[in-house]
Nucleic acid binder design. Structure first.
Lengths: 243, 243
DNA sequence: ACCTGAACACCGTTCAAGT
DNA sequence: ACCTGAACACCGTTCAAGT
């Protein structure tokens, strides 16, 4: 009774398939994920998968939702009853949103291979909805109206995913054939510096800043810009519903 | 003489391969791109490709650069000699950056299939460098310092690519099996509305705003937020080098 | 220098057939 | 209801061999 280890012997669930897919993806990358290997991982024949799942595509959708299984969001807002209550909105929304964004990034980053394959797949499973609900709640109590809160949520989500996508790719596609990240950075920088100073004066001058890749700093830069850009949208004092 | 149509008969170039890859990608999507088909497209046997290219991976790098072949950036800044010259920076940087961002989006969007496969691949070919140089130039003359200009460039690039990636994916992964975009939107909205109002009060209430997908509006929202967030970084009057 | 033929070890998917 | 065996039409890549 209960869930036996995972490959008990009989009764493969769709969850099992999703988990197996994520495991393979993380272990061997994109090329490690085949229907045949997923089948083997759960102790079954390849053809059997098509009873549980219509497609490889559908399996990926499942895996996409399972990706959020162990993502624990920070508690949604938790208004401090004794704290300062600014009129029409709380201003601790920034650290709250920042924390969520950072956790989202590191979550995807520790599952790089899976993220690279699954990013861009919408598939808003139940676990993703939890994140969305709590983020919107935070923004609304901070004084954003519904439409802005929804748009901001989308903006943050797409930005973080796009960022991680770029972050997780070998920076110079061919050069990652065995070169430490710092070596790759130095090499990328040198490449930029050796460009024509006439044609690319700015790129050459800023080679160090472009080649980076201090990804943490870059992430914080983007996050700060997004939060600064959102700030003016808050209704810090609601004109119509004045207390 | 000169470049015969493209598949003259002898002499396949790496450019030919990249173009063929892009063509196949756009015509048949990700699964339409195989080494064998690329070979056929250029009138050669599959094994021959490996003389020109180490890998399928390398072919994708080539295609990634070729993706920017017909992207024509707006002229870089073009300071109006008679126009108003605000101290330490020009303020027409916003429309300039906005135009570039929009063109980047539509460029990728009209090559959705290719974009979905190639996004995330850094591969800064010469054509991408041109874009970078002109964007950085715009930002620098607008009063941003070097480091901020570099970071802003990265931020804009990753955001647009992340946005397009999400935009180009069938919104509810399984439901795109033959449903018009507006139908899919309505369906997604209804799905959100039918969620538990207790567990997801905000999501249910804002279902219309979340399901969208008025992607143009969403894009402009994000763009405005980014520009607003960048604005305060400008040195509108350089304190040390006052004229 | 550039291309082919044939082979190797894989794929996703279907379908009749088993229990 | 769930799984298998065998088959089909594909893959990427290698390698000796051709010109």
């Amino acid at each position: 009774m209960g869930t036996r280890h995972k490959t008990a012997h009989a009764g493969v669930t769709r969850e099992d398939l999703a988990d197996a897919a994520l495991r393979l993806l993380e272990r061997d990358g994109a090329k490690g994920l085949s229907m045949r290997k997923v089948a083997a991982e759960v102790g079954v024949q390849a053809a059997s998968l098509y009873w549980h799942v219509r497609d490889k595509e559908e399996l990926l959708d499942l895996a996409c939702d399972a990706l959020w299984a162990d993502f624990d969001a920070p508690p949604p807002h938790t208004t401090d009853p004794a704290g300062p209550h600014s009129p029409g909105g709380t201003d601790d929304w920034r650290p709250q949103v920042a924390v969520l964004a950072r956790r989202l990034r590191t979550h995807l980053l520790t599952r790089t291979n899976a993220a690279r394959v699954l990013v861009g797949r919408f598939a808003p499973g139940p676990r993703w909805l939890d994140r969305m609900e709590s983020l919107i709640a935070t923004l609304r109590t901070a004084g954003f109206d519904g439409r802005d809160a929804a748009d901001a949520t989308y903006l943050l989500g797409t930005w973080v995913q796009g960022f991680v996508l770029h972050e997780s790719v070998p920076m110079s596609a061919a050069e990652q054939r065995g070169a430490s990240p710092s070596e790759a950075t130095a090499l990328a920088r040198r490449e930029l510096e050796e460009l024509s100073g006439e044609r690319y004066p700015n790129v050459v001058a800023l080679a160090g800043d472009i080649a980076g890749p201090d990804m943490d700093t870059r992430f914080e830069f983007g996050l700060a810009r997004l939060l600064d850009g959102l700030e003016p949208l808050r209704a810090t004092a609601t004109p119509k519903q004045a207390e």
